[in-house]
């Protein structure tokens, strides 16, 4: 189940970034990024730490100024119409820090006001319910766990019902359960509330599960851009097969005419480069040839590529 709005709606750009550069003294953090996020997208913004993700997001939120290049959001230039644009964006930038001495409820009330709305009691409670903090509404934020703080952070990004939601590594530091909750919430926001979402992450798997389009950036440049399904389901993959008898196993594979597919052997492991539909046949042949298959670990090429980056 992936968001399909991008396909149904006319492709209407929400974020357009052209030739974006950001240089600090003696260091170029972002070197000419181009990307377009369309209405209804859940857009994965991937890259290893230090690739320039946060810098780009900070420029999108006008926290810092680009050295050169252009950012258009909702078709308007960010440098010219900052306030009217920000009114329609909700964001978590880096760690979402809120006022620990105030309750979750009060935090949302104040930040909602600052976003140009008059938050109603039901409005605030609805958002808190959405992030699963309804019964802790009146507790002070400093008493919250990390996961709960992250969810209030998400709530402050949603309080003014923005059209575009920008989340900078929203699952950092969360336990697996917390990650699942955030992921479900992102899917819900996309499907039920029809929000456009830009999600930055350094975990490919996380993006794969929610996003429909993505870019991978590395060292300040876009390395790969495209449709998540297409990028990840390319035929070719790298498989590590652990067998009981290495020489027999290699022989079986060679007999299938795949000797060129064998990239490496180590211990009892054979590393193969094959297309996806060959795997089942190889597995059967190994077992029929009297070789026990201990484990099969597939690694898709994009995954491998990404691992090499990080």
């Amino acid at each position: 189940m992936r968001p399909i709005f991008a396909a149904i709606l006319e492709k209407q750009p929400v974020i357009e970034i052209r030739d974006l550069y950001k240089s600090y003294k003696g260091f170029d953090a972002v070197k000419g990024i181009n990307l377009t996020v369309y209405k209804g997208d859940v857009f994965g913004f991937l890259g290893p730490n230090g690739a320039g993700k946060s810098t780009t997001i900070r420029m999108m939120m006008s926290l810092i100024k680009p050295t050169s290049g252009e950012i258009r959001i909702f078709g308007k230039l960010l440098s010219e119409e900052r306030e009217s644009i920000l009114r329609k964006i909700g964001a978590i930038v880096e760690k979402p820090d809120l006022y620990g001495f105030m309750s979750a409820y009060d935090n949302l009330r104040l930040l909602g006001k600052m976003s140009g709305i008059q938050p109603t009691h039901t409005g605030i409670m609805d958002v808190l319910e959405l992030v699963g903090l309804k019964d802790r509404a009146k507790s002070k934020v400093k008493t919250f766990s990390h996961g709960m703080k992250q969810r209030v952070g998400l709530a402050q990004a949603l309080i003014h019902d923005p059209e575009l939601i920008i989340l900078d590594e929203p699952t950092t530091g969360l336990d697996p359960q917390g990650m699942v909750e955030i992921r479900d919430l992102i899917l819900k926001l996309s499907k039920e509330y029809h929000k456009t979402i830009l999600l930055s992450s350094h975990i490919l798997n996380e993006v794969e599960l929610v996003a429909n389009r993505m870019v991978i950036i590395n060292k300040g440049k876009v390395a790969i851009e495209g449709d998540v399904k297409e990028l990840l389901n390319r035929d070719e993959m790298k498989v590590t097969i652990e067998v009981s008898d290495i020489s027999k196993g290699v022989e079986v594979i060679k007999n299938r005419g795949l000797s060129s597919a064998i990239r490496d052997t180590a211990g009892n492991k054979i590393i193969l480069h094959i297309s996806q539909n060959e795997m089942a046949g190889i597995n059967r042949a190994l077992i029929e040839g009297g070789v026990d298959v201990v484990s099969v670990v597939p690694l898709r090429t994009l995954e491998e590529y990404f691992l090499n980056l990080t």
Partner: peptide, 14 residues
Amino acid sequence: AGGTFRVLLTRPVS
């Protein structure tokens, strides 16, 4: 220092 200023700066306020 607490990081809340960043949250304020993402609001549509000059």
